[in-house]
Computed example of a mutant assay.
Amino acid sequence: MSSTSKLDREQHDTAAAFKAARASVLLNAVLMTVQIVIGWMAFSDGLLADGIHTLADLGADGMVLIVLRLSTAAAHRRTGFEFDRSERYETAGSLLISILLIATGMETLWTSLSHMSDAGVAPSVHAPALVVAVFVIVAKEALFRYIMSVARRTRSTILVASAWHARSDAISACVAVLGIVGSMAGVPMSDSLAAALIGLMIARMGWTLAWKTFKESFARTAAGTTGR
Rank of each mutant, 00 (worst) to 15 (best):
S2I: 03
T4Y: 11
S5N: 10
K6L: 04
L7Y: 07
D8S: 14
R9K: 12
Q11K: 07
H12T: 09
D13H: 15
A17D: 08
A21Y: 06
S24H: 10
V25R: 10
A29P: 00
M32Q: 08
T33V: 11
I38H: 06
A42H: 04
A42D: 05
D45G: 03
G46E: 07
G51I: 02
H53D: 14
H53E: 10
T54V: 15
D57R: 05
A60V: 09
G62L: 13
G62T: 04
L65S: 03
I66R: 09
L68W: 07
L68N: 06
L70C: 10
S71G: 02
S71Q: 13
T72S: 14
T72C: 09
A73N: 11
T79S: 15
G80W: 05
G80S: 13
F81K: 14
F83G: 01
F83M: 02
F83R: 12
D84I: 03
E87D: 14
Y89P: 01
Y89N: 01
T91D: 12
A92G: 05
G93R: 05
I97Q: 15
L101A: 08
G105M: 11
M106R: 05
T108M: 12
T108Q: 09
T111N: 13
L113R: 10
S114A: 12
M116H: 08
P123D: 08
P123M: 06
S124K: 07
S124P: 00
S124I: 02
H126I: 01
H126Y: 09
A129C: 05
V132C: 06
V132I: 14
A133Q: 01
A133W: 05
A133F: 05
V136F: 08
A142F: 11
L143I: 03
I147D: 07
I147K: 10
R152I: 01
R153T: 06
R155W: 03
L159Q: 05
A163K: 09
W164A: 01
R167E: 09
R167A: 07
R167Y: 10
A170T: 03
S172D: 09
A173Y: 10
G179V: 04
I180A: 04
V181W: 07
S183M: 04
A185C: 12
A185W: 13
G186H: 13
V187G: 00
M189N: 00
S190T: 12
L193F: 12
A195Q: 05
A195C: 09
A196D: 12
I202C: 06
M205L: 07
M205E: 15
G206N: 03
G206S: 08
W211P: 00
E216F: 02
E216V: 02
S217F: 07
S217E: 11
F218T: 09
F218H: 08
F218P: 00
R220C: 01
A222C: 04
A222Y: 06
A222F: 08
G224T: 08
T226S: 10
R228Q: 13
